[in-house]
Nucleic acid binder design. Structure first.
Lengths: 147, 147
DNA sequence: TATTGTTATACTCTATAACTATA
DNA sequence: TATAGTTATAGAGTATAACAATA
């Protein structure tokens, strides 16, 4: 098998060190977020919903877009969160087919607690860096991920 | 409400920019990994199992430890992967209670494909950086997360 | 016709509790 | 007694397909 692969070239392995670090750091970050969510009887997805709706009123369809999930999944997520009193549905005034979702007071309060906890629980990681390093890391991540 | 909170001090907000970047980059990375897994009819957890077992034969209990999941969850995960022919169980020679798990040939092959795909699919992010920046980002992540 | 959302269905993921077998 | 693993159970997350209402 000395002929080159005609379909796809071999992957560039020069960034392998970064890829491993990104994957490991991401899993560690997700573990922190999942633990915070679980401590408040939320799934990671529900915590994301709170974060997304924290300062927005959006359509179900757009919530599905932000989360990258099917609309039927959103119906279930919103059902459960609504039953818990964290958010509400309301008809979209401009489109008779669409349904808006937005946080209740309790939802906003929980979203605030969550954001605060995320900052606290990631502090062991962030505080290992100087402020200059912290800014540099944030800038590199922003450039790599175009955020 | 001018009295300070007696329970916990307010979180240090100086690293907020980094926290936001970390969370967003982590979700983006997880989305890539989830898509790769889904394209091969794997869950993200199953893809992690393949990566963990790629060069190891370990006990069920240790697999639970790596994944941070309950042992009963591992039983189900291993059941399904075993049924698909990706891994095997075998008695642990040193402990009559323990069960080892290890990849089959098909499991190793799929783990290799997965690792290759992860590198390819994160290439849009990594290739936005110079090699010097890539090394610097990897080093900063490694230091923050102690990996 | 296309889009938005819901519902029914099926499967996976996950934890808790109860159990067996071994240390 | 403590540990390793399985099973039963229950609930959440997820997608697909079929459907109703609106654009």
């Amino acid at each position: 098998m000395t002929t080159p692969d005609p379909v796809a070239p071999p992957p560039d392995t020069s960034h392998q060190e970064l890829i491993d670090a990104l994957v490991q750091a991401s899993f560690a970050t997700m573990a922190v977020l999942s633990r915070i969510a679980a401590e408040h009887d939320l799934s990671l997805t529900q915590l994301r919903v709170l974060a997304i709706l924290r300062d927005r009123r959006i359509k179900m369809r757009d919530l599905a877009g932000y989360l990258g999930l099917d609309k039927s999944t959103i119906s279930g997520l919103v059902d459960r969160a609504e039953k818990r009193g964290l958010l509400q549905r309301a008809p979209n005034p401009a489109d008779g087919r669409a349904v808006d979702v937005f946080l209740t007071g309790a939802g906003v309060a929980l979203a605030d607690v969550g954001a605060d906890l995320v900052a606290r629980c990631l502090d062991p990681m962030t505080s290992r860096l100087t402020m200059a390093e912290s800014r540099r890391l944030a800038a590199l991540l922003a450039r790599a991920f175009e955020i």
